[in-house]
């Protein structure tokens, strides 16, 4: 409840800033709020350092977010090479538009907003030419996600096999979902974003996110009914 209150206050301040941008008292309040957030959230602190011109922190940002962005992109676009190229594009955009980030919103949400837009754009032009296939396994990495881990809940080999079969079926079913449903599902369930943040990343309302997730879940239940 307390955190919701804080979020509400911040939102109020942002709204006020939009309506009265020249007010020095509000600007000071926003700065104080940014400092407080930077102290509380290391991601925000990193981003503020980048905004201040310290480009050395970019590598840290990349290492922190690239594994999630790349995974999202891999699930979203057909080829691994495209996913790598998209990940590069996401980080170039983060750098270019670094001054547009406002510490009032979570950095994760902002990063996923950029990733979401680029992924959805990518699907609109599937014929995009790849100049160089970066994904070719030149480092000897056979399993980018690591070898499949045993399921701790499975007590017998048969159960383990069933779990793997379910996982395979699920991956296929998720990949077959319409793009927006898939994005909403991945952002909310896999990346753990709240519905409000999913809506912000996808540029739609919370209600629209709920509708997308409902339809996605219905489709998945149909696809996986043999396992349920």
């Amino acid at each position: 409840m307390a955190s919701a209150g804080v979020r509400g206050n911040v939102r109020g301040k942002v709204m006020q800033m939009r309506t009265a941008p020249g007010d020095p008292a509000l600007a000071a309040a926003a700065r104080a709020d940014a400092v407080a957030r930077a102290a509380a959230d290391p991601d925000v602190a990193l981003m503020l350092r980048l905004q201040a011109g310290d480009e050395s922190v970019f590598q840290e940002l990349f290492r922190k977010f690239a594994p999630r962005v790349l995974q999202l992109a891999r699930r979203f676009v057909g080829s691994d090479a495209q996913a790598e190229e998209l990940t590069q594009d996401v980080f170039v955009q983060i750098f270019r538009f670094r001054n547009r980030y406002k510490p009032q919103s979570r950095l994760t949400t902002w990063v996923f907003t950029i990733a979401t837009n680029l992924c959805l754009n990518e699907l609109r032009r599937p014929e995009r030419h790849l100049r160089v296939d970066l994904w070719e396994r030149r480092d000897g990495e056979d399993h980018p996600e690591g070898p499949p881990l045993p399921d701790p809940a499975a007590v017998t080999p048969e159960e383990g096999a069933a779990t793997r079969e379910l996982a395979d079926q699920l991956r296929e079913a998720v990949a077959a979902l319409p793009p927006k449903q898939r994005m909403a599902l991945l952002l909310s369930r896999v990346d753990g974003l709240a519905y409000r943040d999913v809506g912000e990343a996808m540029g739609c309302s919370e209600g629209a996110v709920k509708a997308l997730l409902f339809r996605a879940t219905q489709t998945l239940k149909q696809s996986l009914r043999d396992f349920l």
């Binding site: 590598q59 790598e84 170039v92 990495e141 379910l166 699920l170 369930r189």
Partner: peptide, 20 residues
């Protein structure tokens, strides 16, 4: 089951270097 899908994937040094 969806939430158990891995959220992260290994990023190669090659991709990091190319991006930087």
């Amino acid at each position: 089951a969806v939430a158990r899908l891995p959220a992260e994937v290994l990023v190669s040094a090659r991709l990091e270097q190319a991006t930087l």
